[in-house]
Structures are given as structure tokens and as C-alpha cells.
Amino acid sequence: MELRIFTEPQQGATYDDLLAVARRAEETGFGAFFRSDHYLKMGAVSGDPGPTDAWSTLAGLARDTRSIRLGTLMTAATFRLPGPLAITVAQVDQMSGGRVELGIGTGWYAEEHTAYGIPFPALGERFDRLEEQLAVITGLWRTPVGGTFDFAGRYYQVSDSPALPKPVQNPRPPILLGGMGPKRTPRLAARYADEFNLPFASVADSVTQFDRVRAACAEIGRDPGDLVWSNALVLCCGRDDAEVARRAAAIGRDPEELRANGLAGTPAEVVDRIGAYAATGSSRLYLQALDLSDLDHLDLVAAEVLPQL
């Protein structure tokens, strides 16, 4: 089981805050630093000093870190056109020496779209657009150097593109798809994903959705063993109950609710919980670290959980 750190900067973070977390994660042996891609806070937090752009952040981290992998859970397809997004991800992959991963989804948070003037079509159209974006992005990346790429979709048309720049990773940076959608999500994952991720899902729900994706793979003749299976869970680990309660209070959550729905408790409890997810076939966990000032939290997990995996 690989552990990765996952942050929500729209809740209030500067680039320097994120850099500190990414560097500590790198130093202590976590597999990757990921961030959300949102432009508006959620809940009662202030969100100060305001949102940071996901791919601008990752470009900075590409130069300010050395070895940790970097990515998004999840970039909203509504935020960017597929051609420029393919260019951006390829460039950040070059800047990082081949450490970037693209998590992408339909987008779901209507309020952030209205807050910043971004069109937010109905869900069916968002899925249609996501499917076309995946076709364009992967098509641009796999086009041989010297060749050109064309695509005639309903929402996006590409003509005589030189399909440059190319990412460092071959054949391309990993693509992450995820979510609990019962039909289109599994089909898109079977066709395009290198990793399938479930955010904040129970063990039982993970089994159900993983089975749907495996069935979708079988329908198109893909080996589901080609996919990485992963989950994202809120992290709240403490040496004892008092420390768990303190960390839960700092993020406005109840310790027992987090034990039931997140990755919470003492290191021994966290390891047991990880084992339950591993039994579903999940081999990677994204630990949602909500208090970005609490770097000791990462140190604890690195010292007392990672060695047991």
C-alpha cells in the first residue's frame, strides 16, 4: 500500500504553505503530493487568502521539489480546453523530470463556476465534454513527433495539430479517473484511466464500484490488472485519543465520525483501517491533510504507519 498526501488549498493556503507540505511529504517518504483543483472555498472557513490555481502550483512544485510525484484530484474538465491542458501538463511534466499525474473529472461544484464566470453545463454534457477531452489529450500525447493530430467532436475540433510539446513520461503521464457514477464513469475509466480513485467511499461502496469498473474493462477486453485502484480519505491520526480529538477539532470534525468514515485514530487503528481498504484491491491511499500547518501530523504517519505497510 502506497500512501500519498492530498490537500485542499481552496480552504485557505498560500503557495508557501503547499510547498512546506510537499517538501515534508517528500522528506518523510510519502509517494506523492496531490492537490484539489477548486476556485472556491467550501463550508464556514474563510478561504483566505483565496484560491491558488492547481497547475500553476504544480509548476512551481515541479522546480521546488526533487523526487515526489505531483498531481490533481481532480482537475475539472470545465476549467480548461483540452489542447491547452495537454500543453500545460506536458510542460509541467518536463519541468518536474517526469513526475506529473493528471486526475481529471467532470467538475461538480456549481458555485465556483458562477463565482468566476465559468460555464457549467448539465451533467450529461459535462460527461460528453470530459470524454472528448480525454480523447484529445491522449491523442495529442501519443501522436509521434513530426506527425499531426485531428479530432472532430461535438464540442472540440482539432485540425492539423503538431501535437507538441511532448511529456517526459512514456507513453504519457498517468491519467486518474474516479467517482461513484454507475455507468459512464466505469466505461471512461476502462477506456482511458491508468488509475481509478474513489474519494471518501466506504469499504463496501469501494467493492461495488471497483467491480463495476472491472466489468467495464472486461466488456472491452482490457485486463483490470492494468489499473491502479485507490481511495482518498480524510486523515486524523494521533498518538492517543487526546491527540486524535485535538486534530479532529482543528478541522471541525468529530473524532468518532472520522473513525467511521475516514482514516482516523491511533497509528494501530489507522493501519487496521488501511488493511480493510487493501482487501478491496486498493493499493494506494490519498490522505487528505486538511490542517496544512500541522506538519507533525505527517511526521507521525511517516514514523509509525508507513513502516507497517
Score class of each variant (00 low, 15 high):
Leu176Tyr: 12
Arg80Asn: 08
Arg69Tyr: 00
Asp296Asn: 14
Leu227Pro: 00
Glu2Asp: 15
Val203Tyr: 12
Ala76Thr: 13
Ala190Thr: 07
Ala279Gly: 00
Gly31Gln: 12
Phe33Trp: 06
Gln91His: 07
Ala250Asp: 11
Asp48Gly: 05
Leu3Ile: 02
Thr88Cys: 11
Arg69Ser: 08
Tyr286Leu: 15
Arg99Ser: 03
Phe33Thr: 00
Glu269His: 11
Arg63Trp: 12
Leu263Thr: 06
Leu70Thr: 07
Leu140Phe: 02
Ala242Val: 02
Gly107Met: 04
Ala249Phe: 00
Tyr155Cys: 07
Val207Arg: 13
Ser161Glu: 05
Ser36Thr: 14
Ser56Tyr: 11
Ser67Cys: 10
Arg273Val: 00
Pro267Asp: 10
Ala135Gly: 11
Arg129Asn: 05
Leu73Ser: 11
Phe34Arg: 03
Gln169Gly: 06
Asp128Thr: 10
Asp241Thr: 00
Ala193Tyr: 08
Leu123Gly: 10
Phe6Tyr: 15
Ile104Arg: 01
Leu295Ala: 10
Arg187Gly: 07
Ala204Lys: 13
Asp299Ser: 09
Pro144Glu: 04
Ser161Thr: 00
Asp294Lys: 07
Thr280Ile: 04
Lys41Cys: 04
Trp141Ile: 13
Thr7Ser: 08
Ile251Pro: 05
Leu235Cys: 10
Val234Ser: 11
Leu19Arg: 15
Arg142Thr: 15
Arg80Met: 01
Thr52Phe: 03
Thr75His: 00
Ala44Val: 04
Ala163Ile: 02
Asp254Leu: 06
Asp241Arg: 01
Ser230Thr: 03
Gly281Ile: 01
Arg253Gln: 14
Ala279Ser: 00
Gln308Phe: 09
Phe196Thr: 05
Leu295Trp: 10
Ala163Leu: 03
Ser230Met: 02
Ala218His: 07
Val234Arg: 09
Thr7Tyr: 01
Phe151Asp: 05
Ala216Thr: 02
Arg126Thr: 05
Ile5Gln: 07
Asp291Leu: 12
Thr106Met: 04
Phe151Pro: 03
Gly60Asp: 09
Trp229Pro: 00
Val89His: 02
Arg66Tyr: 01
Gly105Ile: 03
Gln133Asn: 09
Ala163Phe: 03
Asp254Lys: 05
Glu26Cys: 12
Pro165Phe: 05
Leu258Val: 09
Leu19Cys: 14
Gln157Thr: 15
Pro199Val: 08
Leu263Ala: 06
Glu8Leu: 14
Arg273Met: 05
Gly71Thr: 03
Arg63Asp: 05
